[in-house]
Design a protein around this nucleic acid. Structure first.
Lengths: 283, 283
DNA sequence: TTGATAGTGTACGCCGCGTTACAAAGCGGA
DNA sequence: TCCGCTTTGTAACGCGGCGTACACTATCAA
């Protein structure tokens, strides 16, 4: 039971001021443990009674009650073995390490030059086709979703309609293919066919021995860790996101203009619950 | 610098009473952090001035001074490892740091207990419905893909057919919702409706202030970094994958059996290019 | 025995704490 | 426009906090 679990069930009943207080104490719980009512009031730009009311709204008698509760929680956290475990880095579960390593390697693989090399054919293509194997579906999905927001004529090709969809592909187009061992037969054969048609191939795959790496010089290598019995999609997704960001850079004003139009479309259709302009937009 | 290091050099100059106080605070440092002079005096069977004198003997102005020092020490100890990591590497590109921090925080949020709490309703549900906002589509996709391989009756609900798809949802079902600020109106209102129908809600969201966190106690908090102009899907995907792995654990033999059948189906249809059995299967 | 000194507890003052009652301001509906 | 409710801030109160001055006790040397 944490302060988060206490706030969550009542978060919709919080007044604006109380919400400010909630954000404050969530950001820095030590404020609650050590701070006085006045401290919190000052930090949240409000008055002391509002702090007390916040405490009662959480179900406590008053601030004192809330604070002593927090202190108890903190005491067990300080004395419990998990805290000591937390400080030792050696005991992290192996999955964590595998994911982190994979991410690091992907970062290393996606240098600035490599990103530019991969993004350029995407930015300049007339049509962009996206293909993928199994592990990498999520990456393909993210790429499709992201690219669609910044340029026209982007299509995610699903296996059962490969032929129909790709019949119009030709020189000047670019196909982005995600696939890793074991390679999906369909994605590989399709890529080969597209390469024959002089379609630019951009391949996200697992190394120079991949059949995809043979098709193009625009490829990059990702390491795929396992999470439980399945392979992780995280590296693919990361690569897709970085590709999208790079294409945005290269398209410049045109991409930004499209994003702005999408934004106003969202506003017009009232898509989001609490619309507040933010520097970072959603995919 | 700890309280031990402060006491050690003067321990021979301590009077009997002061020695009792020293033993007390060494045994339980939270007493110093949270307790008042009176508390300590009572516990050490002495008077309040002795506590104050003890503080001054350690080189502080008074008890207040000592206490605020202890609290500072405690604060850094409580700050999460991810925050300390942030302070180290300043030379890496900001995107990397942001992604790594988000991943660390997600790891912290997805403790074993939390994972079990989230996975149990998924493992036991009659039907599983998956909903998502914008950023988190990829996570929802991965969850759907993974769960489909290990249990029946898993459905990804897309916005335009929400009503039709969910008309059969009822008690005993579980809905997994991914959404983050700005919350997509459709996913939130749908979740609320499902909660009204006593469908179990499992929420992957951005904190206790999320409207989703108000609906259920089975929620977890992810931090969403920005990659270029868009929010990243990586945390959602990671959470989805860890959820799938946990559900596999809980379903045990049944899940493994299903995976094996899928495997032979793949073999039969010759889906992959180079079939070689591997310990880790693809999603 | 007596005086000085170190150790400790009592008594007191002042400040700031948390709390509550009440008034002002903001917001929506009639 | 007015009325009611919700939200928020102001003012006052009483309690307990810490710190300090002072008094008592014990110890030891002379």
């Amino acid at each position: 039971m944490s302060i988060q679990d206490l706030i969550a069930p009542i978060n919709e009943r919080l007044t604006p001021t109380e919400r400010r207080i909630a954000e404050l104490v969530l950001k820095d719980p030590t404020l609650l443990a050590f701070g006085t009512v006045s401290d919190l009031a000052d930090r949240a730009n409000t008055s002391r009674p509002s702090i007390v009311r916040f405490a009662t709204k959480l179900g406590f008698e008053g601030y004192t009650d809330l604070q002593s509760w927090i202190r108890e929680q903190l005491s067990v956290q300080l004395s419990s073995p998990s805290q000591r475990i937390r400080q030792q880095e050696s005991s992290t579960p192996p999955v964590w390490a595998a994911i982190e390593e994979a991410i690091h390697q992907s970062f290393d693989a996606l240098t600035q030059e490599r990103l530019i090399a991969l993004a350029t054919p995407i930015a300049q293509a007339r049509n962009v086709w996206i293909l993928s194997g199994e592990t990498s579906m999520a990456g393909a999905y993210v790429l499709h979703s992201g690219l669609s927001m910044i340029r026209p004529d982007v299509r995610l090709v699903v296996e059962h309609s490969t032929g129909r969809e790709l019949s119009s592909a030709s020189e000047g187009d670019t196909a982005v293919v995600f696939d890793f061992a074991r390679y999906r037969r369909n994605s590989i054969t399709t890529s080969r066919a597209l390469a024959e048609l002089d379609v630019n191939i951009v391949a996200i795959t697992d190394g120079p021995l991949s059949p995809l790496a043979a098709l193009t010089k625009n490829w990059c290598e990702l390491k795929i860790p396992a999470v439980g019995p399945f392979d992780s999609s995280i590296p693919s997704v990361m690569a897709a996101e970085m590709l999208v960001a790079q294409v945005v850079n290269q398209l410049g004003e045109e991409a930004r203009h499209r994003i702005d139009r999408l934004e106003s479309m969202w506003q017009a259709t009232d898509t989001f619950l609490n619309y507040t302009p933010r520097p970072s937009r959603e995919i």
